[in-house]
Amino acid sequence: MSALIALVVAAVTFGTVLMFGTLGEILTEKSGNLNLGVEGIMYMGGAFGLAGAFYYEKIVGEAASSGFVAIILAILAAFLAGAVASAIYGFITITLRANQNVTGLALTIFGTGIGQFTGEFMRVKEGGFVALSNHLKDAFSSTIFPDFLKNIPVIGKMLFSHNFFFYLALILALAMHFFFSRTKTGLYLRAVGESPSTADAAGINTTKYKYLATIIGGGISAIGGMVYIVTTAGCVWNHSGLSGVGWLAVALVIFCMWRPLNAIWGSVLFGALMIMYLRVRIIFIPTEIYKILPYVVTVIVLVISSMRNNKEKQPPASLGVNYFREER
């Protein structure tokens, strides 16, 4: 039991990274845009989030730096980076109507480049390595609940021992669920992703919705990259640490069937699968096989949902298709 609790707790750390990536992409895809640039966006979020906190600390000095301000700045910087990246994607696919797959891949190349370039260039500029002080590091990974809650047997560790970002992601997932199912704007956004011509005919500004969803979604995904850098990677730029994380987030979107609430347990499950080999030994399953399980499971989900042809469990109907009103 305690091994299981420990596994869950550990899975949450990496799961949080995925959750941000996935939630952002869900938002984007709900508008009908398949942004395959998540990988690049998360790289950019990681680099700029770190830069935000690092330069803040450098300017005010380690002693004067506040963990809270650093968290806010890191989130803002990452969000902005992701938003700018997806704005480029949005402009090319929404306004200029280029192929979404190809543009997304281009964004992956571009964003990975920008992220690594920024991360490395900071190092070159600073000489040596770029790392946050322990003070901020603690702030980033400290838990927000008091000890007595954490000490409740079983659920204490499982529910209250995580860092701030997990709870932020949790709130975000709940908020997004509420947004999609209960709010007018959420309903309209879903309509845009399902059938832009219908939404358009109903007087919804599809372009605006697509842009906003893509840009905000990209910003949220980017926060995931930042969370990776400031939690698991130890507050220092990591050249290839984020490699594959964005794609895992894309897989998770499918696995969750485009539902934010599923993203909560889905990301923890994926996080668990990525570290399971360290904790649960099954002799006949080699380590690397654990790591491909998320993808295998996703493929199975994809196939089953297409076989069953359940109307409710399908990708947004216009996913990947650009909309042009006067198309004949």
Binding site: A10, G234, I275
Partner: peptide, 9 residues
């Protein structure tokens, strides 16, 4: 070099 896995281990 895999910061995540090292931390997890």
């Amino acid at each position: 070099s895999n910061a995540t896995a090292e931390a997890d281990a």
